[in-house]
Design a binder for these strands. Structure first.
Lengths: 350, 350
DNA sequence: CTGTTAGCGCTTTCAA
DNA sequence: TTGAAAGCGCTAACAG
């Protein structure tokens, strides 16, 4: 459905430039530049005249042109490459970055990588072509050496969620392994010994680290890892749902689930609900989400802190842009176990 | 926590330019330009030599510089101004815009307005200074005439979710009023006559339109609007929760709720759950969200289609950028009632 | 097919 | 305190 108004949209004006402003104010180009950039050293009267001309012409400085000539070459833009701007983890992180960038007059380019290494390189190239001052990236591929030349030519780069491979840059990470281990120990503390692992594709580093944490915890508890109740690569809701359903009808079904990714957790919750088992099978998910407390039982999770990750990464990027040349460092943002019910269902006594 | 590696990060190289590439390949600047832009009319041998030089130097064209000189002045960037990049509606829309932009080689600047008209103007100005080819905006303020000069100088502008005031541009809107009316009629169809309205601040146009739909439906049903069970400006989860709780302990409490915004719906669901009334009080929310089907009962909603809105808006922007000068039009993306249980609880027989 | 010259809008450098 | 000239990296317009 669509309604149409009357007159066509047609641009009818060339944008005014500093030259136009200068002519109108009866001053030189450089004086306008001084006023626009608050450089000082201009008489009050000329400042007023220039300001008025700017108003009248609706002049907007062209930051592209200014950064071209400027000594430091800064564009006052940064790039943000995330898994998917629409997922809750990414978008919370995005917002945190924005909150650091905007007060500094910096705009952010954002885009989604979809776990596609080729797409990662394309987008990094596109951002490089736009001369972003900084880049915050959650790498999709397993080799970031292609960013070497950006780094050497002065682009500030910080990795979030996953560290860069073959590239020395700052990174801001979650405690994936120890968080996963905590989830498993928590389940074991109420008697569970058959705890299933359901995670994303193991080519994703964080998925691997969470699996590692699962294995570590089981080993400490002297519980053997049983591949029959381990499922990798079930990172989509419906896939996770089907897998959990299949798992639970087995004779030696698990009594507890550790779901190592958001979509997996949701799929598993659906399966439990459909089977009427949500109060019998214990479950802890990795990564929190809105509404997890509204389900019945509430969903126990190991919560990440995407806002802290984004804020930290952005702060580092701007420090680097401002000239910090200290060695690259890794910053860890801890996870937190949030008990809501699903993770506190005890193992059957049998 | 943070771990440090060894060598400091220090830029050591000026970015190569076309001039450098030309020198290395032993050709003129213009030949490099031709190769970079696939203009054709260059011998295979020179193309190869230029390509090699580009590889060796790790040259990246500077789109800022090129757009400065280019006749059409295009920057291959668009701006996206949303309510909050972290909320599900905005971020789904964001992703849809990205999916239209990236295949065309266009990068997107995104930012959040937080319902702040001043912030809207600041950010629009920042995007204008970066010479975005197009702007997709969900207006926060009630006057967009300040964008007039951008429009006249050729920036393609499309509004989403809310229409522009005092500015003739395309807009892509949801059926707010009729969707709300459908929700109310749906509740009335199972006998409800005391249906509460809980919405966002009425200065927000969409909130107003949804309230209008609520009133319209009641009028058609010959049910008087009772301000005692109407609450505006409860757009935060905890506020909505408290308000619903207060509403339900009244002697003449409503038997059904229409919650006109996402956060309101969530707050109301929490209140119902806390009061143990989730199977007694009917409820329909405006705007869908992940997991609404996992609650018990499942949440009945009037679903918007942020992906369709974003895709439509982006397509229009690119048509405009490509030269479409037809009159501004309004495009409507319909809502859809999704029955999941909460909206089908009948009124008590009393 | 290839190259030269000028200039996009701005800041830098230097002179008045 | 003010301004003139040069040039950032690139493409347009024109020659050869």
């Amino acid at each position: 459905m669509s309604a149409t108004s009357d007159d066509p949209i047609v641009p009818d004006r060339r944008r005014p430039t500093m030259r136009d402003v200068a002519a109108r104010a009866g001053v030189s180009l450089k004086t306008v530049s001084r006023v626009v950039n608050d450089e000082g050293g201009v008489s009050a009267e000329l400042v007023a005249r220039v300001r008025r001309a700017i108003e009248e012409l609706d002049f907007r400085p062209n930051v592209g042109a200014s950064s071209l000539r400027r000594a430091d070459g800064k564009t006052a833009t940064v790039g943000l490459l995330l898994e998917d701007v629409a997922n809750p983890f990414s978008s919370a992180l995005h917002r945190a970055v924005e909150d650091v960038a905007l007060p500094r007059g910096v705009m952010v380019f954002s885009a989604s990588l979809d776990e596609d290494p080729h797409r990662e390189r394309e987008l990094a190239r596109a951002l490089s072509a736009r001369r972003v001052d900084g880049l915050i990236i959650a790498p999709a591929g397993d080799d970031q050496s292609y960013l070497e030349s950006e780094l050497r030519s002065g682009m500030a780069i910080v990795c979030v969620d996953r560290e860069a491979r073959n590239l020395k840059v700052d990174s801001v990470l979650t405690t994936n392994a120890s968080g996963a281990a905590e989830a498993v120990r928590h389940l074991a503390s109420t008697g569970h010994r058959r705890i299933a692992f359901l995670g994303d594709h193991p080519s994703i580093v964080t998925a691997q680290q969470r699996y590692q944490g699962y294995c570590d915890a089981l080993q400490t508890l002297r519980i053997p890892v049983d591949q029959a109740i381990v499922a990798h690569d079930v990172g989509q809701i419906d896939l996770a749902e089907r897998t959990v359903t299949a798992l639970l009808v087995r004779p030696d079904a698990p009594t507890a689930l550790f779901t190592a990714q958001n979509m997996v957790t949701i799929g598993a919750a659906r399966a439990l609900r459909r089977l009427g088992l949500e109060r019998s099978i214990a479950m802890v998910g990795f990564d929190d989400f809105l509404l997890a407390d509204l389900l019945s039982p509430g969903l126990t999770v190991v919560a990440q802190d995407p806002v802290a990750i984004g804020r930290t990464a952005a702060t580092i990027v701007f420090d680097r842009i401002a000239g910090d040349t200290s060695p690259a460092a890794t910053h860890i943002v801890p996870t937190r176990l949030v008990r809501r019910g699903s993770g506190e269902i005890p193992a059957p006594i049998d």
